[in-house]
Design a protein around this nucleic acid. Sequence first.
DNA 1: CCAGACGTTGTT
DNA 2: GTCTGG
DNA 3: CCAGACGTTGTT
DNA 4: GTCTGG
Length: 248
Amino acid sequence: MCFNMSIVKEIEALQEEFRADFAEYPILSDHALQWYNASGFDHPIWPVIGKEFPDSIRMYHWGLIPHWVKDSDQAAGIRSKTLNARGETVDQLPSYRSSFPVKTCLVIAEGFYEPHHFEGKSYPFYLHRSDGRLLTFGGIYASWENRENGRTVNSFSIITVPAVGLTDRIHSHKHRMPLIIPENQRSRWMDPEISPTECKALIRSWEPEELIAHPSSPDLYRRKGSRNTPEIRDRYYYGIEGIDLLAI
DNA sequence: CCAGACGTTGTT
DNA sequence: GTCTGG
DNA sequence: CCAGACGTTGTT
DNA sequence: GTCTGG
């Protein structure tokens, strides 16, 4: 699963790393993305690089709206359920298959959150690279035309796979994790010539050696108030050994 | 045949 | 758009 | 607006 | 406690 993620980076840092420019420069007072925690259920716009626009970074809404959706009510109903697309079935399901493999994308993030269930309670953990470098999740995207107002909504879904390694130890409940595309596989993932079979073969459980994790604030999943504060991403001490020491 | 689904796994 | 369940 | 739901597919 | 569906 992957319903919450984070990125706190300068716009320029993304452009340099991916040798791609923002198609529409985000209107940000400080030229930085400042998501300590973004909840998919709020459908934030997020930086992605799509197979059809490999030289630009675009801000797409998290929560894929399939092209066949008829109206905004239907769109609202489906996009909370398409934050993740299971890798096992992404090439078959009606909501995703027309995006695979022609509309795959790299979803740029610094880290992501997973809940650890322990003694009947849930504790969020933040997972990220120890060197602070960015991660790229494998995703799919779609464009939907809202006929009520003539506007186009671009959106994406993060592909999920069975959890492994540190992520599996943390997400002991669902055993799922986002598809992480290794740096040396990014160009392959973005290859416009790739066959469906070859593309499907790139959907594998993997996490970088550098991935580390720590418990984070129980406020992460609160419904009320701002959940996008610097503190929410910091290490939180629960005073429970099974939690505080889990990822050490 | 037509109406309805189409999706995944947070929390309280 | 296309499949499924009734 | 109110009644009714609120969950999962193991072993941390 | 809070959300959804009727």
